[in-house]
Nucleic acid binder design. Structure first.
Lengths: 208, 208
DNA sequence: CTAAAATTGCGACCATAGTCGACTTTTTAC
DNA sequence: GTAAAAAGTCGACTATGGTCGCAATTTTAG
């Protein structure tokens, strides 16, 4: 049986996470060294690397909690019967505001989520999964309301919309957009394009 | 007049780039230290930082040449009168193959292109611009052939397609897709979705 | 031509992410 | 109960990206 060790492990892990939350919040990710983290958590440096592969992974774990919070917060606010576009817009903008609250924070998180390193893939995918399932729920309802084609795979619809969010986020980091308003506008346009389609024929029925 | 200094500058810069090309190609980006780079180029370490802000920026400069080559290569191959979807597919797959030829190489480049750090924004945008203009050309022709709606802003169409490419690339780095074939399939599906639109009504005319 | 100003070059130096091998504690097997 | 195995812990150490202040070179001004 393994009781004592498990307990300790959880405790140590929690201590590290507590230190991370404290220090990252206080001084930011970049200005917090792993040595400091270890000291604050009251453990050795290598102990930390026993629990996390890289400093970025600690950061992802730190984000996980917050993201849960943001999601449940957004879930509360959103109206599950509102038009699809509106729901997506709210979700993405909420996400955007959270992610870019701090410039570097958002970049590190985005980089690690979209192009994860081998070592952080697992954590990154955990978060992705949560994201996709939230999105999936919205989309499924939209399909049943006949707001979305039902002949497509859910994953590709999620992917499509998610892609548009990412590109807007990217434009923000490339400094193509400077204000939140521009972001909103771009997101609206792209969502409309996705719904209506880019080929000329796909739009004819709007004029009927 | 400033002749001597300019000449020297160009020479030094070239020496650094030559060293970068040699070492990055030989041992990869990660396994090449800046010290080594300096030694090979025959300059001091700080001299390098006088020409580039970060190690990643050297890498971007290194990529620039290669990307030019890839583009002109793709441009040669592509048939400017082929269906839009086909042209986009060829362009993106060509890009994908180049970028992921080496796993880490592609990740670093992608990260820096999509979510650039402040210091590398400029270089990153240089490359983006080139990319967008290549894309823009294809799209403009498609519009004039009436393969694309003409009531949209070019930038948002480019952005839309580019987004789909990025999400596929991301899925690759998340290990959602393991083979090039899966990538091709996903890209095809997403491009079709973008053309046809995701709303049910947008598709009706296909059945008329 | 000369001296001051500006630019460029240099490697020792610093900060810090991540590794190593020795030490301690817990579990397992008998 | 005991001893071997396994898991967990530690801080000194390594490797490396990036900075600093000073020295050398080039330009400019008179």
């Amino acid at each position: 049986m393994s009781g004592l060790r498990e307990t300790k492990k959880r405790k140590t892990r929690q201590a590290i996470m507590d230190a991370a939350i404290k220090l990252f919040s206080e001084k930011g990710f970049k200005n917090t060294s792993v040595d400091e983290l270890a000291k604050t958590a009251g453990v050795g440096k290598s102990t930390i690397y026993g629990y996390f592969h890289t400093k970025n992974e600690i950061f992802l774990a730190f984000c996980e909690d917050q993201i849960d919070f943001v999601f449940s917060d957004l879930a509360k606010k959103r109206d599950p019967d509102a038009p699809l576009k509106e729901q997506l817009f709210t979700l993405f903008m909420g996400q955007f505001r959270y992610v870019t609250k701090n410039y570097d924070f958002g970049r590190i998180l985005s980089r690690e989520m979209v192009f994860p390193k081998e070592l952080t893939i697992e954590k990154s995918n955990d978060i992705s999964e949560r994201y996709l399932s939230a999105l999936g729920e919205i989309l499924t309802r939209a399909i049943s309301r006949n707001e979305l084609r039902d002949d497509l795979e859910l994953l590709y619809i999620s992917g499509h919309f998610y892609a548009l969010y990412i590109i807007v986020l990217s434009a923000w980091y490339e400094r193509r957009f400077q204000s939140e308003q521009e972001i909103e506008q771009a997101l609206q346009k792209l969502l409309s394009q996705a719904m209506e389609g880019l080929s000329p024929s796909s739009r004819k029925q709007d004029m009927v």
